[in-house]
């Protein structure tokens, strides 16, 4: 009897949860309300991290923030408990990575403007870093690695000197900057 009650409770809970998946109504692929500041530059379509690849056009930091950091990296790298103290959430990421020594390999900058090969963050997403696992965490086991197109996008931004979003920033929520 006790077993039956437990099974029923668990099933009821699981069914309740399954009914709770977000419909996504009114949201962009990052789960932000369409038209809100943080969604304005992300565009539509898939958020699989495929990015647009390097097309010859200049890559903006906000594009990377919206297509990679916010939907993928900031799932873990956010808040005061972010792994390695690295926050990649909107408004925090740029100041945390550009010209900042990495924790795991202090000899390397997380992002060395103009030098993607010696940028630790690039090494981490390519799986060539000397320390630790390839990012995103779990790739390729529990989630896909970033696609070549996405990595190329980031490499291109670094190659172009890792320019900051307009109006500088490090301060949070200055979104919509392209």
């Amino acid at each position: 009897m006790r077993q039956l009650v437990a099974v029923s409770l668990w099933l009821a809970g699981a069914l309740l949860l399954s009914a709770c998946a977000g419909s996504g109504d009114g949201l962009d692929q990052n789960g932000q309300p369409i038209g809100s500041s943080s969604s304005s530059s992300s565009g539509g379509g898939s958020s699989s991290g495929s990015g647009s690849g390097s097309s010859g056009a200049t890559v903006s930091f906000q594009t990377i923030q919206d297509q990679v950091f916010t939907p993928i990296c900031a799932q873990c790298h956010a808040g005061a408990s972010a792994p390695q103290g690295l926050q990649l959430s909107q408004g925090e990421a740029y100041a945390m990575i550009v010209g900042v020594p990495s924790q795991e390999q202090p000899a390397l900058k997380r992002i060395a403007p103009g030098d993607p090969d010696n940028s630790y963050l690039v090494q981490k997403i390519m799986g060539t870093a000397a320390v630790g696992a390839q990012m995103p965490a779990g790739c390729p086991i529990t989630q896909p690695c970033l696609t070549t197109a996405t990595i190329d996008l980031i490499r291109q931004w670094v190659s172009e000197g890792a320019p900051p979003p307009p109006s500088s920033s490090n301060d949070a929520g200055n979104p919509g900057e392209q």
Binding site: A21, S23, G24, N30, G31, S47, P71, T142, Q143, P144
Partner: peptide
């Protein structure tokens, strides 16, 4: 995974 439909990663199926 079962998330918002516009985010592919939130709707992946994984096996191991």
């Amino acid at each position: 995974l079962d998330g918002i439909p516009q985010n592919d990663l939130q709707n992946a199926t994984e096996g191991f």
